[in-house]
Design a protein around this nucleic acid. Sequence first.
DNA 1: TAGAATGGATAGGCGTTGCCTATAGGTAGT
DNA 2: ACTACCTATAGGCAACGCCTATCCATTCTA
Lengths: 291, 291
Amino acid sequence: MELHQLRYFCAVADTGSFSRAAEQSHVSQPSLSQQILKLEDELGARLFDRLGRSVRLTELGKTFLPRARAVLRELEAARGDVVEQKDSIAGSVTIGAIPTVAPYLLPRILTSFSRKFPQVHLTVVEEITPVLLDRLRASLVDIAVLALPIRGHEFESFPLLTEPLFAVLPQKHKLAMRRSISLKEVRKEPFLLLRDGHCFRENAVAACDRARVHPQVIFESGQFSSLLGMVGAGMGVSLIPQMAMDKKSNCRYVPISDPGATRTIGAVVLRGRSLTRANLSFLSLLRQFAK
Amino acid sequence: MELHQLRYFCAVADTGSFSRAAEQSHVSQPSLSQQILKLEDELGARLFDRLGRSVRLTELGKTFLPRARAVLRELEAARGDVVEQKDSIAGSVTIGAIPTVAPYLLPRILTSFSRKFPQVHLTVVEEITPVLLDRLRASLVDIAVLALPIRGHEFESFPLLTEPLFAVLPQKHKLAMRRSISLKEVRKEPFLLLRDGHCFRENAVAACDRARVHPQVIFESGQFSSLLGMVGAGMGVSLIPQMAMDKKSNCRYVPISDPGATRTIGAVVLRGRSLTRANLSFLSLLRQFAK
DNA sequence: TAGAATGGATAGGCGTTGCCTATAGGTAGT
DNA sequence: ACTACCTATAGGCAACGCCTATCCATTCTA
């Protein structure tokens, strides 16, 4: 039983004639005849009575007709669904972001995206990098926003922005008014850093390593705002990316002059995974905002 | 979009692997791959993400899957309907019968048939021959029971029984006690006959013609029972087929000895029309009862 | 890190099958 | 009887699905 056979069958039922059905189906009459015969053969019963002048459905044909139509209707519905969804920006998108990016970068982007594409259901997951990568692998997250580079080429990365690192100093610190400083200049200061697991901690430690600085860490937290509070209270110094700067805090921010004291934020997707139009729209918005 | 493509697609979705799907579908993996590719090509979008180890449905694939299943389910339903109806004795059967046969032959057959095949919805139409033939042509009647022969080979006839004709005489008629009589012997009697249009009238007239008798018709009716009543009242004589004999009436019935004074009842169907199992069952019951 | 194993895509050949044209065979209508 | 119309059949051709062999990428293992 093939689809074209069902189509031919319906055409004959509609037109009441093999010839007209063939014409309507854009095939020759013998071809159509053959296919109807073949269909009848497979079903083991006649679907039409050939009565000289006209062709009429048998009882069996009468019950088969609506079923055949149903098959074709379902088929069209399937095709329709695809073309509809294919070029519509809708559905749901799950964004993952690391905690050291989420509160600074996402809010503006999310609101803008929601305003632009209200059809899309947005979900945001805030997790540390390895968890996000796992979620990407499992397709539980569509796009992850995190610090590059990511190793392993099962992922595909799109760099978004590279931001300088800043030293965070108490307002009355002796270096507080400098235009820039080197990490070496704060090597003796007590350090406040993010907790282990947060990738920005690796960024900071890596920057220190490069500068041959081995900071003495006296406080760890899961969020920058805590660090800023502690620094403001004079507990020590810290290191943060530009986007975490908070003018309202009690701190001074001085750019780090050491080369490579930066972090790069990028969007990461699972390599080979097909992205929906909504996914792509979000990606392009990300790039736009990163400029 | 072809059915086997949908089947392959579902198989891949089910097994999560092209290879296993191919095995399950009894085709080689390359064949299945090609067909999936072709399907994706036609739809203009990927249905699966090929991720090294595993294969996963895309968003689009996820919405396509239930639709594809629906198509295949409808297809199976269609096939199921056919095989079920093909060899079941059910549905409806419409029987046509002429008025000079219906009340005598049908009642027993109908009750017997209904008892044997309660699933079949029986309808009976009582009309004169030309009307029945029209109904046969229009497939409004499946099987007509009427007097043969029928001319025109758009019909197919199955003789059921040939019955002798009887003269109907008043009980005190001078020929009433004869073992048989010839039409010639009643040529002078006033005749009571069926109305024009009833084919038995033609039967009767034909029998008279053959016997070179030209009866003087003084009464016409649409049913034998009226004729019998009138004959019983002494109005004249009549001619009826055996099955119309009514012992309870006030008449004597004497066989007609003239050769060919018979009528043949047969079942007639539209030639080339396919008969349902129910139709065939009714036909065979007809033959059985006619013996 | 090399090598084996797994799984999907590609290439090329083969057989089936659906479609074509031409024609036969049958039934209405003139 | 002749014509017109319609479906079935015959035979040839091209397309397409399936096959085997092979490639290529990823993943697992030594």
